[in-house]
Computed example of a mutant assay.
Amino acid sequence: MNITICFDKLDPAPWVQGLQHAFPQAIVTAWVPGAPQADHAIVWAPPQKFIDEQPGLQTLFNIGAGVDALLQLKLPTHLKVVRLDDAGMSVQMAEYVCHAVIRHFREFDGYDSDTQSGKWSYRKPRSRAAFAVGVMGLGVLGERVAKALQVFEFPVNGFSRSPKDLPGIRCFSGAQGLSEFLAATRVLVNLMPLTPETENILNHATLSQLQKGGYLINVARGKHLVEEDLITLIDGGHLAGATLDVFRTEPLPAGHPFWQHPQITVTPHTSARTLREESIAQIVGKIQALQRGEAINGVVDHQRGY
């Protein structure tokens, strides 16, 4: 069995070494143009040339949670695209989102500003009941985030394309449920997959439906957000601010208004990083299951986009 690794701007060598150690029966190599045919591939943002040169591939394992970049390529209809179920990303995402929610709720940004100017300040405690957090996208990551927020006793809402029933979480679904979900939400956490239907979903019309003083946390994809609309709603006073980890252009260009906006916190796409050892173990397990003729989790529906 041949396994190839094709990464854009990432060093494949540690992955080749780790996968070869975990799966000694296989031949593991880093892809170069003109390389021999492989049975399985582990990829991150591969070029179309890679797909065109590997018509015999059976599965394409993506090392990130989102597969939107892969589905923009011309893929053979028989090729299974497989995303990671978790591989250590969900706990990182839960940490990041809980930190961002609590930082906003407890007004730590304001305390930081005061202490930097030598001011000993006091802010009246806010009502937790008035800070309903809405998690938009209830996949593996979204469900873990929603459960983590419950620990801090925030009211938690959830939105998904199809109906879900999660204990203690007020769930909404479908186009009709979106408006009700937004109106019930003070802090919006976006974890939706990026598809043609969800691109630009965070726009003036949707964000303005959040409760007055609403707050946005975007940890999904930059193309979900209409950036100008966010700034307009913050500067107009309807939204209190945002924490953004993903952007339309990455790295975020110098001079972009997000860098200097006092009510926007920027982080460099670091909310949930792929953990190599956990990912390799999961991929090896899935390949072995396929060899036994078993079904595996994480196979992407090309039509739905996730």
Rank of each mutant, 00 (worst) to 15 (best):
I3Y: 03
F7A: 01
K9G: 02
L10W: 14
H21M: 09
I27M: 09
V28Y: 02
V32L: 15
I42Q: 03
W44N: 02
A45N: 14
P55N: 05
Q58A: 09
I63A: 01
A65T: 09
G66E: 07
A69E: 13
K74N: 15
L79T: 05
A87K: 12
S90P: 02
Q92S: 09
Q92D: 08
Y96F: 15
C98I: 08
H99S: 14
V101L: 06
R103S: 15
R103D: 15
F105Q: 00
F105P: 02
F105E: 00
F108H: 10
D109W: 04
S117H: 14
W120Q: 02
F131E: 13
G134Q: 04
G137R: 05
V140M: 08
G142H: 04
E143K: 12
V145Y: 04
V145D: 04
L149K: 05
N157A: 01
R161Q: 12
R170Y: 03
A175S: 11
G177P: 07
L178V: 03
A183D: 09
M192Y: 02
T195P: 04
P196K: 10
N200W: 08
S208Q: 12
L216R: 11
H224R: 05
L225M: 05
E227K: 10
L233Y: 04
D235Y: 07
G236S: 05
H238W: 14
L239H: 09
L239D: 07
L239Y: 03
T243R: 00
P253I: 06
G255A: 05
H256F: 11
Q263N: 14
I264S: 11
T267H: 06
E278Y: 00
I280Q: 00
I283D: 02
K286P: 02
K286N: 06
A289G: 04
L290G: 06
L290N: 02
V299M: 03
V300M: 13
V300C: 09
R304A: 15
